[in-house]
Amino acid sequence: MMDQEKRTGRDETEEERADRRWLELIQEVRVAQTGVQILFGFLLTVVFTTKYDTLGDTEQTIYIVTVVLGATATGALIGPVSLHRMVSGRRIKPQAVEWASRLTSVGLVLLLATMASALLLVLRVAMDDDFVPWLVAGVVLWYVVCWFVLPLWTRRRHTE
């Protein structure tokens, strides 16, 4: 009986792997892009409402920070598309996928910060309560568990 080596990974070239990883990454980015673009679009309209003028200085500062975070998250999550377009055909797809992956990770962190900031603003206006920061912290903790802790735990547990 012949010993068979345990097969690990996929039987694909570096270019095939880069193509597969690129397609997977783009699918992931589409989900995040949609969320951040809707949130960012909504945020851009708030300043033009009559309610904005009644906000206190703290709420207006939180709003400005939220808009800037939304803009930076949008940039990071759209960045992989531009990166791919600029390097397409240059035979550097593995490197492009790596950088696109990094941009996506940064975009997710910025999206988390945008959502936390937007939630803080909305709840401060809606509740005017000392409990608001604790509620926002709980939601942020939930995001961190769902978006980072669970994936990292899964990766660590199921890879060698």
Rank of each mutant, 00 (worst) to 15 (best):
V68S: 03
A96H: 08
E15Q: 14
T58P: 02
D11Q: 11
T8W: 06
L110W: 00
L123I: 01
R156S: 07
M115F: 11
W142K: 10
Y143P: 07
L123M: 11
L25S: 03
Y52N: 02
I78T: 09
L39Y: 07
V68C: 05
R91Q: 04
G75S: 12
A32N: 00
L83Q: 04
A71M: 04
R10W: 12
V149K: 02
R10C: 02
R90W: 07
K93I: 01
T54F: 12
V132E: 08
V81D: 00
V47R: 13
G9C: 03
V97G: 06
S82T: 13
V67Y: 05
E14K: 13
T159F: 03
G70C: 01
L120N: 08
T45F: 13
A32W: 00
A32K: 00
H158S: 08
G56D: 09
M86C: 05
T154K: 15
L121I: 07
S117H: 05
A18C: 08
F40Y: 11
I26D: 13
D57T: 14
L112A: 10
K51Y: 15
F131S: 14
A126P: 02
I26M: 14
D3N: 14
L120R: 13
V136P: 06
R85Q: 10
I78L: 14
F40H: 03
L111S: 12
T54M: 11
S105T: 05
V139M: 09
D57E: 11
A96E: 03
I64C: 03
A71C: 03
R85W: 15
V140K: 05
D130Q: 10
Y143W: 15
R10I: 07
T159P: 00
L55D: 01
R30N: 11
G79T: 03
A126T: 13
A116Q: 02
H158V: 01
T8I: 09
R30Y: 05
L123R: 12
T58C: 06
P151M: 04
F48H: 08
E16C: 10
G79P: 01
P151A: 04
Y52D: 02
L108Y: 12
V109I: 14
T72K: 01
Q4N: 10
Y52V: 05
A100P: 05
V139I: 15
A118S: 15
K6E: 11
V144Y: 09
S105D: 09
H158G: 06
D128T: 14
V125C: 07
M115I: 07
R17L: 11
R90T: 14
C146M: 15
L39Q: 08
D128R: 15
G35W: 00
G56C: 08
D3F: 13
T45D: 04
S82I: 13
I64F: 07
V36W: 00
Q95K: 15
T114V: 04
V136E: 03
S105F: 09
G75A: 09
T74K: 00
E59N: 12
R85G: 08
F48D: 01
A18V: 06
L83C: 02
V140T: 12
G35C: 06
D129K: 12
A113C: 08
L43N: 04
K6V: 12
R21C: 05
R156A: 09
A76N: 02
L120G: 05
T104N: 10
V144S: 13
V122Y: 14
R7C: 00
D130C: 03
Q95M: 14
C146V: 10
